[in-house]
Nucleic acid binder design. Structure first.
Lengths: 163, 163
DNA sequence: TTTCAATCATTGAAATCGCAAATAAATCCA
DNA sequence: TGGATTTATTTGCGATTTCAATGATTGAAA
């Protein structure tokens, strides 16, 4: 039944497995709300305050054109509103409605606590802390790699030394 | 510019960030090959031997109906073949063609080595080993949680204690 | 062996995605 | 200032995904 091979232990593969499983769980409880994982991310992100479409795209990792349409649907559901930014009329500011905020707050613990408890089951607090730090470091590494990949961009600066 | 809040450090969020970025990189180099991340996963999975459609779906996390059509496209590209399983005529066995195998082998190091090197930049070997083990443990935790969620299923057995 | 439920894969139809083009506003700079 | 460039968002459209339904096969029960 279970197939084991070298690929099983590649980091991207393992992380994809975990993320995929967690997202499947999120989709399951989000479905009755009429949302999928992307919508859930938008909802929670907006708890941190109003955001432009662009900011939301970066925060949630959703393609901007996809996000634009998703926002339309969520707006039609009464979860959020869109309005032009008075200061910069190119931007659109997205805000939660009371309904949206209520929904987000209600389900917040599931997303931000329950899943971590499952993932960290049997793992010491010390290891959990280190794990989180490593993830942050990895994101920094990826960002640095992105910078390097850019042609004209300035000096790669402080890419973490491979020590 | 950068927005910081509690959600930024949630494990699912951080992992989603990392996986998303890595997948974007994979998509970038896979595009000239006419593949996207899912196709790449199928290709590498088949390096481990022939698989049924069902097995591939579980191994790659691709929805089965999506996978069915993806296999059709990859078959048309000459990367793989499909044939009925003689032992169980419901199943279809998927195999790499020589072309497909060659493509997979050629790009294997990129997927299974280069990305890890980027991710692990500045991280000690010891920590890297621990990190990988933690990922494996987390998958086990998720599997255990799945079992518990099932109604009729047998005893939850050895779910790792929250110590 | 007939029947019924379960499993495997595919397909139709509608929803959604993602790229590229379009639109519009702000910024740059000669 | 005025034209070119950049930034922000939306939309057209073909490609892809998804859900539900279907066809085919198997396993097990009656």
């Amino acid at each position: 039944m279970t197939v084991r091979q070298a690929e099983d232990r590649s980091i991207p593969f393992l992380m994809h497995q975990i993320v995929g499983r967690v997202e499947a769980l999120v989709n399951k409880w989000a479905r009755p709300l009429g949302l999928k994982i992307e919508g859930v991310r938008v909802l929670f992100r907006l708890l941190g305050g109003d955001r432009t479409v662009n900011q939301l795209a970066r925060l949630t990792g959703v393609e901007i054109s996809t996000l634009s349409r998703l926002l339309g649907r969520m707006s039609a559901m009464g979860l959020l509103t869109r309005r032009r930014d008075a200061a910069d009329a190119r931007s659109v500011i997205v805000s939660l409605t009371d309904t949206g905020r209520k929904m987000a707050l209600e389900h917040r613990p599931v997303y931000f606590k329950d899943y971590e408890e499952v993932l960290f089951g049997g793992i010491s607090d010390q290891q959990a802390v280190m794990f989180r730090e490593l993830l942050v470091d990895m994101i920094a590494n990826l960002e640095a790699a992105d910078e390097e990949a850019k042609p004209g961009a300035g000096a790669p600066a402080a890419r973490a030394a491979n020590a």
